[in-house]
Design a protein around this nucleic acid. Structure first.
Length: 504
RNA sequence: GGUCGGGUGGCCGAGUGGCUAGGCAAAGCUCUGCAAAAGCUUCUACAGCGGUUCGAAUCCGCUCCCGACCUCCA
């Protein structure tokens, strides 16, 4: 079997993944800022890294998965409005800041459960780690890479770049940005007079009296800068160097770049070895974002209550939609595309259910009745792991699984002999379908067919309908079928005279 | 303006030198009392122009178009 490769943003190439400590993985993923309701864009990184988590888990690693909650709010760094984002909105809504943060945290957790994402091992909050952040800032100041100005503390990017650049860790190592070019930009912004250089960023920000969220610090009342929380919390829970740091591509610069600079000053090494970045979801080719006014909230997505939506989409449809694209490609949202995912998911899930009902003994005992088909399936089955190992090509894995669906359906319908595949092939197919769809991709049945009372009722109704059909009383049989369909239950007459049904 | 990425059939999307992914949609056929589901078949695309090569969607060059980041952002 092939080994796992990740595309590492830090080195800009695919690299074989090995953990620092055999069998254990430390993974940090930038979590949400809970100043508003989660939207479709948030779904992508958290589903993507849920897959990373699940896959590493499948490979046998023990993982500490840390995903923060940013509840202290990022200030408007460029000084257009120096007020904390969260406290500003809190004033508008006349709520306590922590009340607001709690509300959106709860909504975020709800959405994560809907998506069937596994909970992180630790979900630290920024407000719960003010002390750690202050300690880290003090260390950076002591080492001479930060300076104090009017109760705020700024990171000296230029000095860092000169000294650490000489050690092969320049500012820009992750994003590929050249500091010298940035210094040349002629942008004039207010409140920058405190900074020595415009590329410097805040570690601690002095808070005005009207600012509600603020903490005592050696530099006066204030609040932490945008990037320091992740450095402080990742170091605390994963150590000075850990395996994977993940997040959206939009965080690569400046957020992750600054994180690297801060942590590197404190710990003399780049904090994470593998930097994974998922690409954006776009709407009509444009990134979804507050500034574009094209945000679809997750609650709107699940209920269909957004003007861009022609219908509601279930969490699993959205999850499947995301899985059908490689995580580093942009994914363009559209009703047609979502509907395709909805139907595709149903098709592959139905195949899984069928496969799980197959008696493994129907397979040719050791010998395949149709060697060509058997070989074909085996090749597809083996390729699944290779595709997954190739930087998590979930799109290709799904394509491989889809290629086996006609075979599964043919066996069920009797178009293909039950012993066309060998027992081993059939067993492997069953294993892989379950492993990938359920364990690794985290898909689940949303249609609730396991209700035993409903099953027995439908069995009775189906028998009555079959009696009617036997008497050629099609008016009655069609009435039963149509009215059940109106009620959301679809009957399907099978080849063998049986009846199957599904909730739609 | 700087940096980076991309343009694949009606739609969404894999693929990175030869072996024409996959899903959805559409059409035909089979099955069926009729449906639905399913199976089989069809639709064979790689922005444009040059170049390298026996051979290019895939490599190189140029042109056009789009997006992301540089500012809160998943």
């Amino acid at each position: 079997m092939s080994s796992l490769y990740f595309y590492n943003s830090l080195t800009r190439q695919k690299e074989q993944f090995n953990s620092l400590i055999p069998g254990r993985v430390g993974m940090y993923v930038c979590g949400p800022t809970v100043s508003g309701e989660s939207h479709l864009g948030h779904a992508r990184p958290f589903i993507t890294f849920d897959i990373v988590y699940r896959y590493l888990n499948h490979l046998g690693y023990q993982i500490r998965y840390v995903r923060n909650i940013t509840d202290a709010g990022h200030f408007e760094e460029e000084g257009r409005d120096s007020e904390d984002k969260i406290s500003k909105k809190a004033v508008l809504e006349k709520l306590e800041p922590m009340e607001l943060v709690q509300k959106y945290t709860n909504l975020f957790h709800w959405a994560m459960r809907e998506f069937n994402n596994i909970e992180p091992s630790i979900e630290p909050t920024a407000t719960g780690h003010i002390v750690e952040q202050i300690v880290m800032i003090e260390k950076i100041i002591a080492d001479g890479y930060a300076y104090i100005a009017n109760g705020s503390v700024y990171f000296d990017v230029d000095k860092y770049h000169k000294n650490f650049g000489a050690k092969g860790m320049p500012y820009g190592i992750l994003s590929g940005r050249v500091l010298e070019e940035q210094l040349e930009s002629t942008r004039e912004l207010e409140s920058q007079e405190e900074k020595r250089n415009k590329s410097d960023f805040a570690l601690w920000k002095n808070a005005a009296p009207e600012h509600i969220m603020r903490w005592q610090s050696p530099w006066g009342l204030g609040f932490p800068g945008w990037h320091i929380e992740c450095s402080a919390m990742s170091t605390k829970y994963l150590g000075e160097e850990f395996d994977i740091h993940g997040g959206g591509m939009d965080l690569q610069f400046p957020h992750h770049e600054c994180e690297i600079a801060q942590s590197t000053v404190c710990n003399h090494r780049i904090p994470a070895r593998f930097w994974l970045h998922n690409n954006m979801i776009t709407i009509n080719g444009r990134k979804m974002g507050k500034s574009y006014n094209n945000v679809i909230k997750l609650s709107e997505l699940f209920s269909g209550s957004h003007e861009l939506l022609t219908q509601a989409y279930t969490p699993m449809t959205v999850r499947f939609f995301i899985l059908q694209t490689h995580y580093r490609s942009t994914l363009d949202f559209g009703n047609e595309a979502l509907q395709a995912s909805e139907k595709g998911l149903r098709r592959i899930w139905d195949a899984l259910v069928l496969l799980n009902k197959f008696d493994l003994n129907i397979g040719g005992n050791g010998v395949a009745g149709d060697p060509d088909l058997d070989n074909h399936c085996n090749r597809l089955l083996i390729a699944l792991d290779d595709d997954m190992n190739d930087d998590l090509n979930t799109a290709k894995v799904l394509a491989g699984l889809f290629e086996m669906v006609p075979t599964i359906n043919s066996i069920k319908d009797g178009h293909t002999s039950t012993d066309a595949l060998s027992k081993d092939t059939l067993a492997l197919m069953k294993l892989k379908f379950n492993t990938y769809l359920v364990d690794i991709f985290g898909l689940k049945d949303e249609r609730g067919q396991s209700d035993e009372k409903l099953s027995s009722v439908l069995k009775l109704i189906s028998e009555i309908r079959n009696d009617a059909r036997a008497k050629k009383d099609f008016a009655t049989s069609d009435k039963i079928r149509n009215q059940l369909l109106d009620a959301g239950i679809q009957l399907k007459d099978d080849k063998d005279g049986g009846v199957s049904w599904e909730v739609i």
